[in-house]
């Protein structure tokens, strides 16, 4: 039934990975706040092993056989949920899914009761997304399972930041000790105020030795985020100048209602990342976007589809990154 040559050995992957993930002692992935530089770099090595699996003919290993992973998406998501589920199944985990719209949550059930109900079904890890910051933290009080944050409110989106940095490392051949981040500059442009992607990325890039410039209109650029190696500017030109990576964030239409933006047109005129702006960047600059994109608003189509764009690579890297997350949290514990 199987050919030993084309099927990767679980033992092999485990051995490969285990040497790299020893330091990743966390039970949960709530945010990246307590991660050290070494942990990030080791995590990327684990991700390399997972990426190798995804290159094989049969893209499946038995590492999580017998484990059950539940996805709890209280807020809509397509790509993140799909990516997590793909990553779980690639390691032979069983996946159960909960989506707020189709659930008893609409009948007034609390997040705690929802969790306890699913917990009774013997779950090893939860992948959680919620519109309120802190829900993944709250859930840890009510279950012994691992909690993996798939995005909470404006606060944190750790797997997105991990895959962003991993993509950067790939592009800049950062396979040395420093990961290639030291002294690099990354610009994040857009709605910083509401962005969990920005908050998680600030942590990871600064921890790895890069400088981060946050850019957006004053209303969407909270000055409290300024700190060592994180600067703020209202000028895209200033942000992009000499940058090794530029990340555009999705601009949500509903921001106009709260007086946070004049119009999408004025926004795109002042803050769009496009070919003209990118000329100011470093020669090797890559262009990123966490998706989904509003083409011609925060990013020009030309740039999004151009040769600097690594947007599709980010999506592809989402699977091995999330495999590495599951592996690091669940195997050998």
């Amino acid at each position: 039934m199987t050919s030993t040559q084309s099927i990767p050995s679980n033992i092999e992957v485990q051995a490969e990975a285990q040497t790299e993930v020893q330091a990743l002692k966390h039970k949960h992935l709530l945010d990246l706040q307590d991660w050290t530089k070494d942990e990030f770099l080791q995590f990327f090595n684990t991700t390399d092993a997972m990426a190798d699996v995804m290159k094989r003919t049969i893209k499946k290993v038995p590492a999580l056989q017998g484990k059950t992973i539940a996805t709890l998406f209280f807020e809509n998501s397509t790509r993140t949920k799909l990516s997590f589920e793909r990553a779980a199944r690639a390691q032979s985990a069983d996946v159960v899914s909960f989506a707020a719209g189709s659930s008893s949550l609409s009948k007034g059930e609390s997040i705690k009761d929802t969790l306890l109900t699913i917990d009774a079904m013997q779950v090893d890890a939860y992948v959680v997304r919620h519109v309120s910051s802190g829900v993944p933290h709250q859930l840890t009080r009510w279950t012994d399972a691992s909690i993996i944050n798939a995005g909470d409110g404006r606060r944190s989106h750790p797997t997105q930041a991990l895959l962003d940095a991993y993509t950067f490392r790939q592009e800049f051949n950062g396979f040395d000790d420093s990961g290639g981040f030291e002294g690099k500059k990354i610009a994040i442009v857009g709605d910083i105020l509401h962005s969990r992607v920005a908050r998680s990325n600030i942590k990871i890039w600064t921890e790895l030795g890069a400088k981060v410039v946050l850019c957006g209109p004053r209303m969407l650029l909270p000055e409290e985020l300024e700190r060592k190696n994180v600067t703020l500017t209202n000028s895209v030109a200033e942000a992009v100048e000499g940058a090794h990576a530029v990340m555009a964030l999705r601009m949500q239409q509903e921001r106009m209602a709260g007086g946070l933006l004049p119009s999408l047109q004025e926004y795109s005129e002042r803050y769009q990342v496009n070919d003209e702006m990118i000329k100011l960047a470093h020669d090797d600059c890559i262009v990123m976007h966490p998706g989904p994109m509003n083409r011609e608003v925060e990013i020009s189509s030309e740039l999004a589809d151009g040769e600097r764009s690594v947007i599709e690579q980010q999506v592809a890297n989402g699977v091995p990154v999330r495999m590495a997350v599951f592996y690091s949290l669940l195997v050998g514990k």
Partner: peptide, 18 residues
């Protein structure tokens, strides 16, 4: 006050709460 659920400041920006 709008939709604020806690004091606006360094902590609210860190916690990502309005």
């Amino acid at each position: 006050r709008k939709d604020g659920v806690m004091n606006e400041g360094v902590v609210s920006q860190r916690l990502g709460l309005p």
